[in-house]
């Protein structure tokens, strides 16, 4: 249990998938101009990540890992080289479902997210979470916590960024730094803020 709490806290704050592994930067920078859209995308990404990481864990452990097919009579088979293709296909399927649901229940958010909604499919943060889960040998419970935690961390980061962007409109930013430059520096400062949680240990 303690282990789960520490994986959860770590994936939200110190090991934040966006701010310390640089994954999912493109949609983070592009969608963080508007607080509402940012929150919408953040929740969508959290949802996709919380779903895909456990499903990918099942796919990996039951079909792909070395010796995973022993139940079907192939104890020597190692299909783990297929994990990239299967993970991506599975993420695409889940994003497709979520796209249909958002289109049906919140057309405003659907229009606001535009092309960034289908692009969740190739959001590297989501595939990254699945690959880290394999690399770190997480158990099923740990994967559930890690997926939800990483998504929450990404969501928190993009919401913080959108809120700061809103304030920045009234700030005197040097000419050369306006736009992308100040976004990067603010991201760096947010990352420092998230790293402060390194002192918190359970």
């Amino acid at each position: 249990m303690e282990n789960l709490i520490s994986i959860g806290l770590n994936s939200v704050f110190v090991g934040n998938i966006l701010l310390s592994y640089f994954l999912g930067m493109c949609s983070f920078l592009a969608v963080s101009r508007n607080l509402q859209t940012a929150a919408g995308l953040g929740v969508a990404v959290t949802f996709v990540m919380a779903l895909t990481a456990p499903v990918n864990w099942l796919i990996y452990r039951l079909l792909l890992a070395p010796g995973a097919l022993a139940w079907a009579g192939f104890p020597n088979l190692n299909l783990s080289f297929l994990k990239l293709i299967l993970f991506i296909a599975q993420i695409a399927a889940i994003v497709q479902i979520i796209e249909i649901i958002i289109d049906r229940y919140s057309p405003a958010l659907y229009t606001a997210l535009g092309v960034y909604l289908p692009l969740i499919t190739v959001n590297c943060a989501i595939l990254g979470a699945s690959l880290f889960m394999v690399e770190r040998n997480y158990s099923f419970a740990e994967t559930v916590v890690y997926g939800a935690g990483s998504g929450t961390g990404w969501c928190l980061a993009i919401i913080a960024m959108a809120a700061i962007q809103k304030k920045l409109r009234y700030a005197k930013v040097p000419t050369g730094l306006q736009g992308f430059g100040i976004s990067m520096i603010v991201t760096g400062l947010v990352a420092i803020g998230f790293m402060l949680f390194a002192g918190v240990s359970m």
Binding site: Y21, I182, M184, I185, L189, A191
Partner: peptide
């Protein structure tokens, strides 16, 4: 990590 962001900025 934050150093990279600030350096790019």
């Amino acid at each position: 990590a934050p150093g990279a962001f600030i350096m790019i900025g």
